[in-house]
Design a protein around this nucleic acid. Structure first.
Lengths: 349, 349
DNA sequence: AACAAGAATGTTAACGTTAACATTATTCCC
DNA sequence: GGGAATAATGTTAACGTTAACATTCTTGTT
């Protein structure tokens, strides 16, 4: 009547019988213990394949019974970031047989309630931006020696586990890409000053300009808050300039989308009269048209790595890890592509 | 050295000792078995509170060993939908001590590979749009009597478990909201014809027009594909009309955002010269400026309900359930608000 | 007061896996 | 070729929970 139980119930014992060995040997093969005779390993692997055996995560988790619940803090249910974040975290959690608990907070966070969870409900915590830049959380974590990983936060080397991309280099590369397409007047829209990545991205822009021997023009650098509206307003100011820039690099995609809207309002054609670049490759980047050239962070992979890191027995103790993951410059419709520059940009110096 | 183990390791046995009863009694209290003497229940509850005991999901799952892995199909990692979907599903899965497995597919789906998973890897499946409108998946599910829930798909009453909102009524109400603000020429941008909600939303628009005694003008109804670009193009056509509409109702938010872009390009002010309404309340609705008036689906709650439904022992057998969840008309900047209409729209007839 | 009937609680065993220890097979060397 | 050393496999018990059955405690009845 219900065939799924029958098939789902293949256990390590079934495989052991089939292969003519003990359950323990199966366990060893599954966990790639080196001291299994090759011939035995093959026998077992065949049996596993034939029966379509998959280890029972619950039983594994029960046996190990160390870390069980990992908390992922999030700020906004409709955040562009959230889907990918959850996807990656979920994959790692599932593989490890650990439960993922998601907890909503906002920057006006109630630290006390978090502290209570530390004591009882969670065994580790993952903190994505913008919360990862909040001093309060970092102190709390340090005070409890609580296993934690911070995503894309300020670099305090060795003070906590961190996973991020090299924002400085990414901004440098994207600016370079614009320069190598012939732009010399490139506007920049800064991010919210309360997030540390904002400064890092700005510095990358500076470096590229300097290396290319281009002037740094204060008029071309505008404040932003990572919001669409702030990007739109900043771009309007740029469009009103006597000699306006031929390209705008916004510190995130929402602002870049705002820049595109502003360009439309001013009757400026994109990308021919104005090139636009963003940062993050969030959903809006591929929703709008033309699609945004942007910097892609491997968000899912970062989340996955975060879970794996935090699962480590002594994630709460020094030495802490800082993991820098590879980013990718993505060139779409808001930027001109020319064959000659294409290669040099994909693999910058 | 590591205080989390200490606190995390409170087991049912510890509680039993503390309360002076057997572990079984604790289990009964935790699972609200009615045959526990009230006085005992209180004793146990106190002990639980004092020790901060929380049941070990792994052990539970291991013991129960019925449904263990629920698959959530998804189409696009950067989908606006995904974050909320995962959030809701995760909550329900966590409560039930069940593992959530997410599997990427696209409409050009490989049905055979799915079928293999049925046999072994999953115990139930949740299918959100756009996959939920694919005939192939429905047949596959039916053939295996596989426990499944389809989200926002075509209504085939009683043929499968369905969870959706009343798209027809929601579109009706949103159109009504526009009408009660004084609009009489309301453009409509249709959704992709391969998704059944497109037709339902169009019909709701028709009904509102008809009930209000307004003419249905073919010129005001334009094809769309649920993409930003198609919304932008459709709106451009509407803007080029000799007597253009004063409002546009797009079948989803991406197209409404495209409509906004088109309005900007044509120098049409929003919302004063043109009101715009969308559907879904996806992230883009609150990213752009002015923010979109739209119809909110309780996506997280729908996903949660889906997990709970599919967990039901005989979810794979008839009778199948169809659950209609409440939607919400959300009025933001792309639509004019006037005190007089506000109330009548929040609670339409 | 004695006892049946039911309510409340306790005992046992099992879910699937693996760490730790125990046993058996193989290899190597003088 | 005998025995030590090492490699390969097996056995046992335990992780925390609960279903099924067993036992004890209440209650109401005659």
């Amino acid at each position: 009547m219900n065939q799924r139980n029958k098939s789902g119930k293949v256990t390590i014992v079934d495989v052991a019988k089939k292969a003519g060995v003990s359950p323990m040997t199966i366990s060893r093969v599954v966990n790639s213990d080196p001291k299994v005779k090759p011939s035995t390993r093959i026998k077992v692997e065949n049996a596993i394949a034939e029966l379509n055996y998959a280890p029972n995560v619950a039983a594994r988790a029960l046996k190990g019974s160390t870390v069980r619940r990992i908390c992922l803090l999030y700020g906004n249910p409709s955040s562009a970031y959230l889907g990918e974040l959850l996807l990656g975290a979920l994959e790692a959690a599932s593989e490890a047989g650990v439960h993922l608990v998601v907890e909503r907070t906002d920057p006006a966070i109630n630290l006390e309630s978090l502290e209570n969870h530390f004591e009882s409900d969670w065994d580790a915590i993952i903190v994505p931006p913008p919360m990862s830049d909040l001093a309060g959380i970092r102190q709390l974590v340090a005070k409890h020696n609580f296993p934690a990983v911070f995503l894309s936060s300020a670099t305090i080397p060795g003070r906590a586990n961190e996973i991020r991309i090299d924002d400085h280099r990414a901004a440098f590369e994207m600016t370079n890409a614009l320069i190598s397409e012939g732009h010399t007047r490139i506007g920049f829209i800064k991010g919210n000053p309360n997030q540390s990545v904002s400064e890092r991205r700005l510095q990358g822009y500076f470096l590229a300009l300097t290396e290319a021997g281009l002037p740094i023009d204060d008029y071309l650098i505008r404040d932003g808050l990572f919001t669409y509206r702030s990007g739109e307003q900043a771009t309007s100011q740029l469009m009103a300039l006597p000699s306006r820039p031929t390209a705008v690099f916004a510190s995130n995609d929402d602002m870049a989308a705002g820049a595109l809207a502003s360009a439309a309002r001013h009757g400026v054609a994109v990308p021919t009269e104005l090139a636009i670049a963003g940062f993050d490759d969030s959903p809006i980047a591929t929703t709008i048209w033309p699609a945004l050239s942007t910097v892609r962070q491997p968000v899912a992979k970062m989340a996955k790595t975060a879970v794996e890191t935090v699962l480590n027995a002594d994630a709460g103790q020094p030495p802490f890890k800082t993991i820098v993951m590879p980013h990718e410059i993505i060139r779409r419709g808001t930027t001109l592509k020319t064959e000659s520059t294409y290669l040099s940009v994909d693999r910058p110096v």
